[in-house]
Design a protein around this nucleic acid. Structure first.
Lengths: 339, 339
DNA sequence: CTGAAAGCGCTTACAG
DNA sequence: CTGAAAGCGCTTACAG
């Protein structure tokens, strides 16, 4: 029993066949008698042989890994509960498939584009996840140029040749607005996210649409970059206005929590003086006081589905788009009739 | 101008030398005349040649990648702001070195150990980061067995053959306790983290030591798993006691925020009726109301230093331990004299 | 159905 | 200082 790892040659000679045949058996290719295949596989198992992914990579130009490039300033990244959960979902399918996840965190667009180029040039990954879609998203063009498969998270702005996994967050915003309207609110504001991002823009549009539909003024909207700091600032500006809102719909939970802090600091009672809704259903949102009414999605499931879709895309060159269960309103304690 | 990527053979023939010499020039090995080396490198540059990392991996048994295995339940992972920031720091040095980061997220110890075995067996990484050190940590033994280099984050419980990058969080806890004592608090409780983890245990010990030193009772301690939910529960139990504390030192920010919520829900004024301190200095902690007095560390810097240390360890088989700047107390609004 | 051989793109003794 | 060749561990036409 030698100490070095067995190779395909060891398996071949132990099974009394050629290396080529072992390879065919391993990869389930036709042309191997069923009995022979079983014998080869049994021998491989006996020897504890695992085909070298490096060697397979070199001959097949496949890396057996998927990539995720996250573009986010280092200072902001910790506040966003989406990625860790999403990654946990991705991993749960990759580990079963013997695939690895290569992660890259970059501060700006230039570094982001470079990251994709490097991943492709070094053949580090067979495909990538595209998150935080933007309206004018240079990644689609680059990826086509590089010939790198991808799956988009969310509905791309223009028609692209990549499959996507989307989640309808529109109905959640709509539900939040009608919940507030039914409570009696009329002056409802929106602290919107980054408008260069698809989901930031769409949440804002959903807000406006729902407000107009209710016959209400939809002009109290402040744009932010989704960060806690800007969420707090926006809240201050809204509350400083001549005609401050009685309710604010935030584009994410961290900003809603920051808004809650600003309101409380001013001595406002939430929800008595101000109702607040978040977006994400993050863990912490259930534990602040008052517990946050929010719109919940399922990032873990999103990760799972995106991973399966990307794997399909890589393997077959095609995959169907998936629409996940819509984000739904979770009513807790931060919303109530205006006083 | 061919469309396929140039290989070492292309560079060799264009430069009029052998492939071997190109390789020597690339890797800065002795035995190449300076002029020759420059010429080769110039030609390589002209052709836009990037050596194939896959091919290099196969012949050198090096993957040019580092691994991070995070063991955390999918439901809990989003609440922890440490990892995203840490990873951002790691990336900032890896990208300069042409290294990639392979990430694995696993739910329990069995999956964790399997993850390391797979990473090693598949030669996916040249070394790994060890986070969340535990008192009886099976990873050290496994990694030695696998011959996989590693760097530990924090001070290992026993003497191990791996370098570590540690951060003194003891002095931060001590500072928090003396801050509270100097404000006049006597009944101070601690909502501790997971005691099977080194840092969870050490924060608790630091708390006890600081309390004893002040001549105070250090018995009001409740252990948790670091999760928001358990942080909230612990707070309820503490406040339900016959002799409830006037101040609580939490082992992390998310639990402190949850504790703040519980206190407020009971109509307690923070900091009037109850002072609260967190640990981490997360973004959101500055925006809750009242802004959280907390103990700040620098996870991004931790990531940078850990990456450099691991790279050294991989390259030379040795690296010195590093002690980072200690976590320091950041006094904000959640602490005040007891009423 | 099976085998022998070339090839993936590097690195590394070994000669000279 | 430089070159030719073998080798890393697989896959894949090509013959038979």
């Amino acid at each position: 029993m030698s100490t070095r790892k067995p190779t395909i040659a060891d398996v071949a000679s132990a099974a009394g066949v050629s290396k080529g045949l072992v390879s065919f058996a391993l990869n389930d290719r036709p042309g191997v008698a069923a009995g022979t295949r079983d014998r080869i596989l049994a021998v491989a198992d006996d020897l504890g042989w695992r085909p070298s992914v490096t060697a397979r990579s070199l001959s097949t130009r496949t890396s057996f890994a998927l990539g995720l490039v996250i573009r986010r300033a280092a200072e902001v990244i910790g506040a966003d509960p989406f990625f860790p959960s999403f990654i946990a979902g991705v991993e749960s399918v990759l580990s079963d498939e013997g695939r690895a996840l290569v992660l890259s965190v970059v501060p700006d667009e230039a570094a982001e584009l470079t990251a994709y180029r490097t991943l492709a040039a070094d053949n580090r990954v067979d495909g990538v996840f595209l998150t935080d879609l933007r309206h004018d998203d240079k990644r689609f063009g680059l990826l086509e140029e590089l010939g790198l498969p991808a799956v988009a998270l969310g509905h791309p702005a223009s028609t692209v040749r990549f499959p996507f996994v989307e989640l309808d967050d529109t109905s959640g915003i709509r539900a939040a607005v009608s919940h507030l309207v039914s409570l009696g609110h009329r002056r409802i504001a929106h602290v919107a996210g980054d408008q260069s991002m698809i989901h930031g823009g769409r949440r804002r549009e959903s807000f406006s649409a729902a407000m107009s539909q209710a016959g209400l003024d939809d002009s109290q909207v402040i744009e932010t970059d989704f960060s806690v700091g800007q969420g707090a600032d926006a809240t201050r500006r809204l509350l400083d206005a001549d005609d401050p809102p009685t309710a604010i719909v935030y584009a994410n939970d961290p900003m809603a929590i920051a808004g809650l802090g600003v309101a409380q600091q001013r001595g406002l009672d939430v929800p008595g003086d101000l109702s607040i809704t978040g977006f994400d259903g993050s863990d912490i949102s259930a534990f602040v006081f008052p517990a946050l009414t929010t719109i919940t999605s399922d990032p873990v499931e999103w990760g799972r589905v995106a991973a399966r879709t990307l794997l399909d895309q890589v393997a077959t060159g095609a995959a169907s788009n998936v629409t996940l269960a819509p984000a739904t309103l979770l009513v807790r304690r931060s919303t109530a009739p205006p006083q």
